[in-house]
Amino acid sequence: MQMTSSVARPSAARIPWLSLGVWGALAILVLIAYARAPQATTAVLTSTIRQSTPIILGAMAGIMCERSGVINIGIEGMMLIAAFLGYLANVWTGNLLLATAGALLVGGAVGAFHALMSITLKVDQIIAGTVINILAVGFTGYFYQQGLTTRGKLAPIDIAPLSSIPIIGPVFFNNPPITYASLVLIVVIHVLLFRTAWGLRTRAVGEHPAAADTVGIAVNRVRYINVIIGGMLAGLAGGFLTLEAVGSFERNMTNGRGFVSLAVMIFGKWTPFGAWGGSLLFGFANAMQSQIQFLQNQLPPWLAWVSQTPPQFIGMLPYLLTIAVLAGFVGRARPPAAIGKVYEKE
């Protein structure tokens, strides 16, 4: 308990011994599981990474916005619009790279719209985010047509020698491009926030905008740029869904991932690595529930009750986990101090 005060601050992480310990223990568990059921273990881990990809991208979208002082509960909507328009771009051009770039741009544009509402027009930021979420459902639902076809989705890229390492190889080195990108982005955003002048300014603007202003930092400009970057990250998460994971669009296909991202952002105390931990947890719960549903009739006798449980209940597991995690962590996490407040000089 003597750690709480240091844990509660969203500052640059010092060496997080506690979480290193937890991850070490998990690694040992994985090794044991792998020894007993190598295929299922690899499948669960691979699927954990896939499931966590849109979550960590969404969480980093939240981090960029909130670190600069702008609440963004519109991540869900940003993902959905970008997923939809990215998919249409794929349908029309047949070029997956172009479609991914399209998803990024659309996300950035919706981010700019959020910035316009919350910074320039001073709309309450929760309402601005809600506007985006509602618009996204309406817009994508209205323009969605069934029966569109594409020429496929982003394929895994095998990074040759590395991918043959047991466990780690197939999990980390045989992924499609957006998944790789998200892993790289975790490091990039961490460095950006905690090791660069831009990051220092961003955090200052989110903590004490008047202080930033008095040393000549253009508070609203910094906020605009970060919210747009955040929108692009949410756009990439949307692109992941239609261009990499599924290959087609379905109504409402984000399915609450934007909100889970926000939960994960808080869990990770507004740091990319912390949020990654949260995303992996969510991804793992998701992977487990699909494995359980998949393996229904091969379960050992003492788990037979699982096959009698309606699948809807098993499908709830990741969300229950999210609620449990949030109930346990939200109280202790401290958001950036100036979050949600419009900065006005005079």
Partner: peptide, 25 residues
Amino acid sequence: FMLVPVFTVAENIILGAETGNGPFL
């Protein structure tokens, strides 16, 4: 005072007039 409480003294002092290699602090 116009200081960011969760920053160190040095971070507060250089804020807006950062020193470093390129973009890195």
